[in-house]
Amino acid sequence: MTEAILKAEKLKRVFTSGKSSFAAVDQVSFELKKGECLGIVGESGSGKSTVARLITGLLPCSEGEILFFVPEKTNGSPGEEGSWINITQAGKRELRSVYRHMQMVFQTPAESFDPRRTLGDGIGESLRNMGIKGSELKKRVDNLLELCGLSPEFALRYPHQVSGGQCQRAAIARALAVEPQLLICDEATSALDVTVQKQIMELLMKLKKEQNLSVIFICHDLALVQMFCDRVLVMEQGRIVETGTPDQVIHTPREEYTRILVDAVFDI
């Protein structure tokens, strides 16, 4: 629990349109430890998703750097042999090795799968790239589906043939195929019904406990963050305005902005 696996330092991302420019993310620094779950909350437009896209290298940083620990062995943990890769300067080859240890789950599960290919195909793609094939591949895919609470028959279905919740579980199965160190969930449960949301949260908690998975959990629902995360960053207009444990932030917010966020949640 003590070793860091991800360090972000003074991230900045500027979007320009015409002559005007706008910093979607500014001065964002944080560290993530092995097995830790970090929540990022804030209103829409506060830069939560941009941070996720910067970390995963889907979007280049304007300034700052992101260091990610890549262990030498697939199942290695920090402290063992490995190297730090600077994602902001990494080439394609380096990024590929990063993605063996870092995976992402998106908000709209159906859109993240190729509609013309089966779920099993999508889940097994990264395994095929690693040279696994035939019955071994099928066995691995079936195991992943089972881990995420789906029966093996789902491997043969197409994205439009399953419900949103089932598709999101398949997306988590796909992300877990490479046995990543870090899972980044960008509003992974926001589009789902409460009953399905609960199942997905239980799955994530199980994975965190059993596989010591580190998670960056981007969410606008404070209740989920409170239940799941060890630490939380509150973002406002691209900057981190408050950090702490979820209970600290929710019970004794230091910033007015955080207090407004907490007050806006309806009691049930």
């Binding site: 009953t195 949260m201 209740a223 409170q226 019970h251 907490v262 009691d267 049930i268």
Partner: peptide, 8 residues
């Protein structure tokens, strides 16, 4: 039961 409540 599925609703995750915020403990304020």
């Amino acid at each position: 039961d599925s609703v995750i409540r915020l403990k304020k």
